[in-house]
Amino acid sequence: MSQMPDDTAADEPIHEPRLWRDNGWTARVIKNNDDDGWAVEMIRQGEPEPALVGPWTMGRDKKSPKPLDTSAFNTLVKTAHEVVRRHEQAQQALWHKELSVMTDTGRVKVTLDITPDEDDPYATLAAFDAEGGTIDSVRVAANFKLNAGSAEAWIAQGYGRPR
């Protein structure tokens, strides 16, 4: 099995039967730890962990893996990119909440953006008018629950630090 090349050649394409690197992605066919089969891992350049690990097809001899080729690599890149995109969307949904409430002065959009800092996680609660202008923003605990009631209470108290 091929060893991963050193970082000095990280941009150079590699097209080997069990190792392909091109366009910012590396596909490596590896022995499947769970059985006698093979798996393929897709790693995006610069990332420490694979974005995708999945089963890989056996070759004709039913012992060694089918070699990687251009078509398979392109399909793996497309699949891995989609997995990364869905993960990023899920992270964004987890760290950003948004809702609108009606007030006497019109619609106010309220957002909560969580900063998941390892030592000091926090969130920013912000209010925006109908034109997108900032009305106010305040730092709150990362576990602040944004819902229609908490947003309305924050607006009713004149913004500032929520109670």
Rank of each mutant, 00 (worst) to 15 (best):
residue 84 V to F: 03
residue 76 L to C: 05
residue 14 I to D: 05
residue 141 A to Y: 00
residue 89 Q to P: 02
residue 48 P to M: 07
residue 162 P to W: 04
residue 10 A to Y: 08
residue 51 A to G: 08
residue 59 G to K: 05
residue 110 V to Q: 01
residue 27 A to Y: 03
residue 70 T to N: 12
residue 25 W to F: 12
residue 52 L to A: 06
residue 111 T to L: 02
residue 70 T to R: 13
residue 79 T to H: 02
residue 68 L to F: 01
residue 125 L to C: 01
residue 107 R to E: 15
residue 20 W to S: 03
residue 88 E to A: 14
residue 43 I to N: 01
residue 35 D to I: 10
residue 87 H to E: 15
residue 148 A to T: 15
residue 66 K to P: 01
residue 45 Q to T: 13
residue 108 V to M: 05
residue 3 Q to M: 13
residue 14 I to Q: 11
residue 105 T to E: 14
residue 146 L to R: 03
residue 155 I to D: 05
residue 97 K to A: 11
residue 158 G to L: 08
residue 60 R to L: 11
residue 94 L to P: 02
residue 40 V to P: 02
residue 74 N to L: 07
residue 41 E to N: 09
residue 49 E to G: 01
residue 51 A to W: 03
residue 38 W to Y: 02
residue 135 I to Y: 01
residue 8 T to F: 10
residue 105 T to K: 14
residue 64 S to D: 14
residue 77 V to K: 00
residue 93 A to C: 10
residue 67 P to G: 05
residue 131 E to K: 15
residue 144 F to N: 00
residue 98 E to I: 05
residue 92 Q to I: 09
residue 140 V to H: 00
residue 127 A to I: 03
residue 12 E to S: 12
residue 122 Y to I: 01
residue 71 S to N: 08
residue 43 I to W: 00
residue 70 T to S: 13
residue 121 P to N: 08
residue 11 D to W: 08
residue 63 K to T: 14
residue 124 T to V: 13
residue 113 D to V: 04
residue 57 T to A: 10
residue 37 G to R: 07
